[in-house]
Amino acid sequence: MSPRAQELFSRFFIKPPLVPLLILASFIPGFWSMGNMRILAEAISVDGIVVIGMTIVMIAGGFDMSVGAVMALGGVAAVVLLPHGLAVSVLAAGAFGALAGTLSGTLVTRLRINPFISTLAVMVMVRGAILAYTDTRPVVSLDDMFLALGEGRPVPYAFMIMVAVAITAHVWLNGRPWGRHVYAVGADETAAAMSGLRVGRLKLQCYLISGALAGFAGMLLAARLGTGSPIIGESTPLSAAAAALIGGASLRGGEGSVGGAMIGLVFVGGLVNAMNLLGVASYYQSMVIGGMLFALVVADGAFLRLRSS
């Protein structure tokens, strides 16, 4: 096999075993039905938009623990601002997310706080703020236009939006100087700074993008459910990180791609979907995802050891 074919084989069959998973899932009645494919598409499209942001931050050598809380923020903001018009509400979801991302980015770049701690603190602050604002109750919307945004047949709008975001992010990361700079910052910050890149600004932009995408994704989820809930997204940072890591991103930065992350996304989403169809209780799903993340990070660290020794 040519190296290119080998790489493709590895991407789909081994890291992650996506094709084997899909073949196994074929034995589950109804997995390939139109109805289930739609459910799968809906489930992965909201998470997928978050994963893209997370991947960009991870390529730049950071991490964004706040994505779940920011999703909830976007959903609540969108529903609350709906009376001012759909456009305002959609833009506000992204803008509030971008604001949270800017806060994370500022803590990381200006105050030089470890990205995990910065985004953890932002996560807690955002969660506290929306729980206080909504008095811990979900906000409900009955606006037809807004609910229609959560529909789309046969392909959900959210899925099309995710694909569009993924293509845009892919083009930016691979076809533009900005993308090369982000990879450079993630691979070696000192070297990037010495070759004249504005490291702080680039990193801040990555967190801003991640925040805006998470807020936007939260708006789409609220449109699908008809509610903006202040408590959604608790495990989102976990599954988003798992998808990005499976897709070849690394906690050390400088590695990863949007395409890889999308494969990781379909793998994680497909696994969860298959477990749902089999009637596996959500507790076991939490175990599987948590255990998988644990194993992935261990593999990520062990790989570093192998290479450095």
């Binding site: 799903q285 993340l293 644990f294 062990a302 570093l304």
Partner: peptide, 22 residues
Amino acid sequence: AGANSIVTTIGMQFFLIGAVLA
């Protein structure tokens, strides 16, 4: 193994919560 402690222990957190609830 040299794994990042924050993400490792968050993975463990979800694993344990799932295991206990199961």
